[in-house]
Write a protein that binds this DNA or RNA. Structure first.
Lengths: 253, 253
DNA sequence: CGCAGGGTTGACATCGGTCAAGGCCAGTGG
DNA sequence: CCACTGGCCTTGACCGATGTCAACCCTGCG
C-alpha cells in the first residue's frame, strides 16, 4: 500500500507547507508494520527505542505507573501520531506506551527519521504539531486539577470527538472509543467506580449513550457547554464525516 | 548588554549544536526589554501577540481561568523560556501568561523569529526544548491526577529545585520561589488552605523550610523519595551552583 | 497608624475513594 | 449446546482527603 504514510503526511501538511520532495522523502521511508493487541506495551518505560513508532491504526496511550500501582494516562495517540519523538531528548523512555485497542504500528528507522528532521519544513511541522500536543496536555492538567468528574469526562469526550471528526471518524454523532472505565479513570485521575457513577449520571441526562465501545453524543453543543470546551486549541479544521472512507479494521468491537 | 540572549542561547545549545552564525543571528535580534510586576499579565487569553515574549529574568506562569473563577496554572516559565511559540499554531492565545514575581521580558519581533525558524539547528533545538516541556507537562498531569497533596507539592519543589540548580540558582539547598500558597494550589489543583496544611506537615517533618520566599530543602534525596521524583525527564545536566554569578535582581523579596 | 495581602485555624461539608459483593456478557472448552 | 471463566460493569455502605466558609493573625508598607 502506497498510502501507508497518509495520516502522517496529512497531519504534517496541516502545519507546514510541505514541498513535493518532502512528501517524496516521507513516502520513501520503509517502515515495518506490526500489530499490537489491546493492553500490550508498544514501548515500555526505560526502553531505548531504536525505531520511531508511528500509529497507523487504532488507539494507544502514554501512561506512567507509580510504585504502588497507581496509573496515569497522559495522552491518547491516534493514527498519524508519533510515539517516541522524545528519544531525541531522552535516550530512555520516561513513560510507557500501550495499545488501548488493537493497534497497527509502523516502525521507522531512527536514522531515516534523523534525515527527515534535516528538512526545515518537516522539522517545523513537527514542532507545530508538538505545540498542539502541548495545548492538549494543558487541558488535561486543567481537567485533573480543576474540573470535577463530569466536566472532565465531558471535556475528554469533546476532545476525542473533535479529533475523530477531523479525520472523518464520526458518523451521526457516534464514534468508537472502546476503552474501559478503568482507562477513563486513569486518564482523568478518578477511580473506576466514580467514573461509573459519573457516566451513569451523564447517560441519565442523555448527554451520552454508550453501546459496545461506540460513544454517541446526541447534542455536542450541550456537552461542550458542560465541559467548557473550546475546540480552538486543537488547531483542527472542521471537516465533516467522509462516508466514503472505510472504517478502520481496528477499534471495532 | 550584549549578553541579553544568554539564557536563551544556553538553553538551545543544550539541545542542538548551534553554529556560530546561528548564535550570531540570535544576538542580532533586537529586542525591547520590559518590566512586568507580579500579578500582571504578560499576555492575556485571547490576545494575538505581535511579538514573541522571552523571559529574561523572574518567574512567570501559564494559567487558565474557568468561568467560575477556578484557576489552573499549567507551567512555570523561567529565564530563557519563550512564552508564546504557540502563536505559530494558534493565532489567538488559548491561555494567559502572568508574572509570578517581577519579571523582565524581551519582546522579539515576530518576523525576526520567523527568520530564526528557517535555521534547521534552531528549529531542531526548539523542537527538542518543546519535547522537554511536554515531559514536564506529563508530570504535572500525574501530580494533579494521581499524586496526593504532599507528593505533588514535593514533586513540584523537586522539579523547580532541579531547574534552578541547573542554572546555578541554588545555594546550600536554598533558592527563591516567592509564590503564594494560592499560586501553589492553582498549580497542583488544591485549595490554598489545603496547601497550607500540607506545607505545615512538610515543615514539621523538616522536609522543607520557608523563609520570605526562600525555599530551603535540607535533604533533597528525601524529598525525591517522597515525590517519586526522577530528574531524568528534565534533560538537565547536573551543574553545581555558580557562586560567582550574581543573583537576579528579581525574585527577591 | 492603618491597610492589604497573605498565612493560619477551626468547624463542618462533600466529592470522590475504598472495599466487597454481585451481575452481565463474550469467549472457551467440553 | 451448555457450563465455566475472566473481564468489565454496577451497587451499596462506609471512609477519608480535600474543599468551604469564616474568622483571625501577621507583617510589610504607605
Amino acid at each position: 500500500m502506497k498510502n501507508k504514510m497518509q495520516e502522517f503526511i496529512r497531519k504534517l501538511a496541516g502545519f507546514s507547507h510541505l514541498h513535493a520532495d518532502d512528501i517524496e522523502a516521507i513516502h520513501a521511508l520503509d517502515a515495518e508494520l506490526i500489530t499490537i493487541d489491546r493492553g500490550v506495551d508498544i514501548i515500555s518505560e526505560g526502553d531505548k527505542p531504536k525505531f520511531l513508532n508511528l500509529v497507523h491504526a487504532g488507539l494507544a496511550c502514554r501512561y506512567k505507573l507509580l510504585e504502588d500501582g497507581r496509573r496515569q494516562i497522559t495522552a491518547y495517540l491516534i493514527p498519524g501520531d508519533l510515539c517516541d519523538l522524545n528519544v531525541y531528548v531522552l535516550d530512555k523512555m520516561d513513560h510507557g506506551i500501550m495499545a488501548l485497542t488493537q493497534t497497527l504500528i509502523m516502525r521507522i528507522d531512527r536514522t531515516d527519521m534523523d534525515a527527515l528532521l534535516e528538512r526545515p519544513r518537516i522539522a517545523l511541522g513537527l514542532l507545530k504539531s508538538t505545540l498542539v500536543d502541548e495545548a492538549v496536555l494543558r487541558q488535561w492538567i486543567i481537567s485533573a486539577g480543576r474540573r470535577r468528574a463530569i466536566e472532565a469526562i465531558a471535556h475528554l469526550f469533546c476532545e476525542v470527538h473533535a479529533r475523530m471528526a477531523a479525520v472523518g471518524h464520526v458518523q451521526d454523532g457516534s464514534f468508537f472509543l472502546p476503552i474501559t472505565q478503568q482507562d477513563l479513570g486513569d486518564t482523568i485521575g478518578l477511580t473506576p467506580v466514580h467514573v461509573n457513577r459519573s457516566l451513569q449520571e451523564m447517560r441519565s441526562n442523555d448527554l451520552i449513550r454508550m453501546d459496545h465501545g461506540a460513544l454517541h453524543i446526541p447534542d455536542i453543543a450541550r456537552l461542550h457547554d458542560i465541559a467548557g470546551f473550546e475546540p480552538l486549541y486543537l488547531h483542527l479544521l472542521e471537516k465533516s464525516a467522509a462516508p466514503g472512507r472505510a472504517a478502520d479494521l481496528v477499534g471495532r468491537p
